[in-house]
Structures are given as structure tokens and as C-alpha cells.
Design a protein around this nucleic acid. Structure first.
Lengths: 365, 365
DNA sequence: ATGAAAGCGCTAACAA
DNA sequence: TTGTTAGCGCTTTCAT
């Protein structure tokens, strides 16, 4: 142990009067092969503690051929917490979950292209780059959250690296997935609104580009049907982009219609920001003149009024995603199946943003 | 090169008819010692490209005794983007900046204590653990954002690892710092409000526990003084905790006073959420009945109405922090000094949340 | 300008 | 149960 640097297993071995390999076994031995006697183990641990020894993760990684790094490719270029609240929070949960299992998360933006800036030779951008970057970093697995195309996923998957897609998977690639079933939460939300007396409930969300979006819309329509309500086709305002601005425009359009809905369901917490802005501007008070429910429950609780919302179990998604990568890396015969396509439930959280509709239903455009 | 695994420098060397050491020089040689002829370099690069070779980062790291990992200890336990918007965004900027330089960020919560769950022997929590964890991970440097006490920082700093504190430094430890000067932005904000005709401007923020909080308050008071305005002592509502709830309570107190302020300055974007809730509840319209300005500009733009805000240059903070760690790791004689205590400026962004005060200044509580 | 050789600190056969 | 040995893929003197 030289100046400054940490003690190594050799230092511990010398002090404890055992071989270096024994020290290694004490620290990294799998349970299956408990090769070390209790006496030796105790002595080694004591010496290690005294010296402040811990195994060098890089040396372990090199030897084991495991980097301990999991790549995370978030849905969009994350910009601000309001624009993309879910990926932000998911990233946090992933990082936590990974750390608990001794992994790290590195986040890679597909379009950001960090690789190019390092190796000037490489000039072809985008898809190619993401995969190269991931491979050059020797990640042990990759977690995709809503890739724009199947191409990236396909390439990474084909390279043999464990892949799991979460929340918004590209279903054409047969990777493991962890998705969220919007139905339970949306059913509860709609039931809640209907119980309050609402009949005209509008939907502000995205259309059929992603299966996930379709699923939310379908769940919404199905939930209405449960109460013998048909959706007002014109009150399904489908935004083109998942942005507050698009939701704002959609809501304005909704408000200018001859017969206004009495409640709005916004299919994302960033969308609800735009919805609220439009309502505020039009002086439509929430919940007095309009009930509002959102999906995501990331920002909802802290807005005004606190917005009732359908919560996704993001912490569990992160937890499971990391666990799945870990399981894929060290397959146990038993658990092989059954966890490759996990679907988690949503739940509805009521808040002050809903109340019975006003009896006066004149338009105020 | 066996099945599945990536090609190594040996593979490239064989194909190119050179020694492995030469391949290494081509890829990692410092400029100082340009040991390789152009012909050889070209040939090696061609073969490498054909084989899809890139240096194994773990092997490099082990050999160089550089993990390439920078630890990030965020200000608080990050929970949701609304509760702690700044650390979320800062984390993103740090990750981006690190990646550009070939580093990774791993995030460590001081109280979260991820280490304990792995090594059951360790039972003493908190401070001790953070440092051990960082050391066991062999981080090359640590970035602190607002440590609660100086203790952690001190220990890491004492261990010889490069440390930089950002935004909310503990000044008792003589690490490098990157801070933000609130004065320019706050001056502009106050000037803006005064120009609109506001004279009674309240401050919702935290008191003297942190230098940074004091600085914001002092900047605010100083800005008032520039316009020959004295702060109404009772309109400096200091919240105990940096939470929307505390700001909500403070704002309610403010509204119940006999003479209401006509404008509120909230010293953080999470605080402004509480401020807006209190105003909405009391049916005080923004900006008609109350102008509102916030600090941070992370959430502000997407609230209703869009809140004028003092923006911190978070991207630059992240960029500089990583650059500083890198510089500390490879000191260049020239730049040693001058970058150890960097102070960046804030700027004010006007939005629809301000307007001249109403002439009728009766209380409505 | 290039090659040979010695490790970085660890894990995993294989021996003993 | 423990020790010996051979690398993981790379960087870096030191020869040539």
C-alpha cells in the first residue's frame, strides 16, 4: 500500500497471514462455494476493517467481464422537469435501484451524440452512434424508455446485450418489457367523475402514434362505456406533441365549442400544465367550473389546485427494470420465464381538482 | 477475439502487423510523445475500424488508476421534480458535461445510505458511510451541491480527492467552489417591479441558515435600497424549510396583514408553487392583484401565469464543475489559480406575472 | 519509431 | 479448506 492509494487484497492477505486468493474469496465468494472457514473469514475481515480495505471495483469488473454499468436511454431529450417530468423521476428511481444492486446508470441521449465529440473520426451520427457508444462503454445492459424507433433497440438487442424497455416499448422488438396498465387508474378516475355527476368528459392526449397513447385513450373510452357513456368524438382532443403548448391549444379549442365538457382528463402531467393555463386564461375556475384529472402524478400534487391524478408506479418500474437486467445477466433456470413482460397497475389519487358539475351549463366562450 | 466479446488491442495488433503497445499508443498516446509514424497510425486505425475496436474503458481505468467516475452529492434527498427542481436539472447538466469529457456521474445521497444495504457488517450510518462509499467506488472527484454540514465535505476533501462545491458551498472547507451571484438577477427583478410602480414588495424565502439564503435576502434588501426603498420588516417572510407548504403558510400570513404587499418575490421555484396556491385560494389574481417573481427559473415558465424569474446558469455550473474536477486531476501549472472560486451571474427573465399595482390598495383578507 | 515486458487489483480454475 | 497460477485489456518504462 503506497502513499495515498487504497490498500489492496495483497495488503490484507499479508497482514492476515493468508493468500490473496483467500481474501478475494472472503469478499466476493458466491454462497454456493463457501470455501473459507469461519476463523479465517473473521480474521480477514478484521484486518480488512483495520486497513480500511474494500475490493477495487474496476479490477473486479475487468476480471469478471462485467462493467457494472447499465445504459439508460430516456424517451426524449430531457430538457426541463416540467417538460418531461416522468423521465426525470424515472431516472432517479433507476439510479437508486441500480446503486442498491451495485450497478451504475449512465444516461445516453440518442440524438445528443456524445460519442462524436470524443472520437473525431466518427462522423456518422444518430442511430449508429448510440449503439457504438453503448458498446464502447461496455454496458452490461440497456434500459430504453420510449425509443422513437425500433431501430436502436433492435441493434442493441441483436448485439446480445440484455435489454429491457419500460413504459413505452417498441413491441416489434422482442425484448423484455415493463409496462404500466393505465386501465385501473383511468377506470377509477372516470368512475370518480361520473359519480360526481359528470357526463361530458373530454380527453386531452396524444393519438395513435404510440401504443401507449392509444392504450390510454382506449382505456378512457372503455371506462366511459362502463358507465354507458359514449365519448363525444369532438371532445377527444388529440394533441400532436406531448407538450404543454399543444395541450393549451387543445383546451382552448375545447372551450370555444358550443357545449363545453364539465371535466377534462389530461393524459400527462406536462399536458395538464397547458390545460390549466388555458382554463385560467379563460377564467374557468377549477374545480368549480371545470373538473380536471391528470395522468402521471408527478407534478399534479403541487399544482393549484392539487390535481387528481392517475399515478404510475415509477419507483417499482425502476426497481424491476434493474432487477430484470440483473436477472438477464445471471439467469436462474427457475425465473427465466414469467418476468419478461411485466405489467404494473396504476391507481387513482383524488384531489381537490374535482367536484360536481355546475348546474348552469351555458357556454361562456 | 472470442465469440460475443469485443475485439482487443491484441486483435488489432495482429491484423495490422504491429505490436499491441503500438495500438495502445495510437489510441491513447498523449500529444507530447507522438511516437507513431503516420503510416502506422493510419494502418492501425483502418484495422481498428474494420474490426469495430475501441479501447476497453475498464482496462484503461485500472491501469491508469482513474475510474472516470465523479460522485455527485445533491443538496437534499431528491424526491420529486417539483420539490427539488434545481438538483434534478443540475444532475442532468452534470451528467451531460461529464459524458462529454468521458466521465460518468454517480449520484449519492448522504442519508440514503446505499452502502449499508450491501455490506451488512457496516452498521454506523450517515457521514461515515458517504465517504466510505465514495472511496470504495474509487471516484476521481466529488461534486457537492449544498451539503447540510461541512463534515462530509471535510472528510472527502481530506482524503485527497478533488472536490468542488456548487451553488451552496460550506465555506469552512477550502474546496474549489462554483457559486452563483444572485445580485444581478435580483437587482433587475426589483428594478422591474419598481419601474412598474411597486413599492411594497414581500420576500418569501429562507433565513440565515445558509449563506446562500442570506445572500438572496441581502441582495433583495440591497436592491430595494437602490431605489430608496426600505424593506417592510414584516413583509420579509422567512420560511423554515424550502418547501411549497412553508411558502404557502408564509403567503397566507402575508395576505392577512392589514396592508398587503403588491408584489411577492419567492426565493425559489418550489416556493413559488406554495405562493401561487395561497394566492389562488384567496382569489388574489396574478398579476392583476399581485405581481409575482421567482428565483431559479426551472418551473417558472410553465406555471400559470408564466412567472417572471431570476435564472441561474445551471448548465454552465455543471459544465464548469466537471471541468474543474478534470483540471484538478490533471493540473496544468498555468491554470492552477483563478478558477478555484468561480462566481457566475444570474439574469432576470420578465414574464406575464407582473404588472403595475392596482390603484385600489384596500385589504381584502 | 517500435517491440518486449511488467504490472494495475482482482477472480477462477486447478492443485494440494 | 487454502494456495498457486494464469490471465482480464490496457499503459508505460526500457530496450532496440
Amino acid at each position: 500500500m503506497k502513499k495515498g492509494s487504497s490498500p489492496t487484497s495483497v495488503d490484507v492477505a499479508k497482514q492476515a497471514g493468508v493468500s490473496q486468493a483467500t481474501v478475494s474469496m472472503v469478499f466476493s465468494g458466491r454462497q454456493e462455494r463457501v470455501r473459507v472457514s469461519d476463523a479465517t473469514r473473521t480474521r480477514v475481515l478484521a484486518v480488512a476493517a483495520a486497513l480500511g480495505y474494500s475490493p477495487h471495483p474496476l479490477a473486479q469488473a475487468l476480471r469478471r467481464q462485467r462493467s457494472g454499468i447499465i445504459g439508460f436511454v430516456p424517451r426524449d431529450q430531457r430538457t426541463t422537469p416540467t417538460m418531461q417530468p416522468v423521465p426525470f423521476l424515472l431516472g432517479l428511481h433507476l439510479a437508486r435501484a441500480a446503486m442498491q444492486r451495485g450497478y451504475h446508470i449512465i444516461e445516453v441521449g440518442a440524438e445528443e451524440n456524445p460519442f462524436v465529440s470524443q472520437v473525431s473520426q466518427v462522423s456518422q451520427v444518430s442511430q449508429e452512434t448510440l449503439v457504438s457508444f453503448l458498446q464502447s462503454r461496455r454496458v452490461d445492459g440497456v434500459i430504453f424508455d420510449g425509443p422513437e424507433t425500433a431501430h436502436d433497440v433492435e441493434r442493441v438487442f441483436a448485439s446480445g446485450v440484455p435489454v429491457v424497455q419500460v413504459i413505452r416499448p417498441q413491441l416489434t422488438v422482442s425484448t423484455a418489457t415493463i409496462t404500466v396498465d393505465p386501465a385501473p387508474g383511468i377506470n377509477a378516475a372516470v368512475a370518480h367523475l361520473v359519480a360526481l355527476g359528470h357526463r361530458a368528459i373530454a380527453f386531452v392526449g396524444r393519438g395513435g402514434s404510440y401504443p401507449v397513447d392509444t392504450l390510454r385513450l382506449d382505456s378512457f373510452v372503455a371506462a366511459l362505456a362502463r358507465h354507458a357513456l359514449a365519448p363525444d368524438r369532438d371532445a377527444l382532443h388529440l394533441v400532436a406533441h406531448y407538450t404543454p403548448d399543444d395541450a393549451y391549444a387543445a383546451t382552448r379549442a375545447l372551450l370555444s365549442r358550443p357545449v363545453r365538457p364539465t371535466a377534462i382528463f389530461a393524459a400527462g402531467d406536462n399536458l395538464v400544465l397547458g390545460v390549466l393555463r388555458a382554463l385560467h386564461e379563460a377564467r374557468v375556475r377549477v374545480p368549480e367550473a371545470m373538473s380536471v384529472v391528470s395522468y402521471d402524478d408527478v407534478l399534479a400534487a403541487d399544482l393549484y389546485p392539487p390535481i387528481a391524478s392517475v399515478a404510475q408506479p415509477l419507483a417499482e418500474v425502476g426497481e424491476r427494470a434493474v432487477a430484470l437486467i440483473a436477472a438477464l445477466l445471471d439467469p436462474t433456470p427457475s425465473e427465466e420465464e414469467g418476468l419478461r413482460h411485466l405489467v404494473l397497475a396504476t391507481r387513482f389519487i383524488a384531489r381537490a381538482s374535482t367536484q360536481p358539475p355546475q348546474s348552469s351549463d351555458g357556454a361562456g366562450g
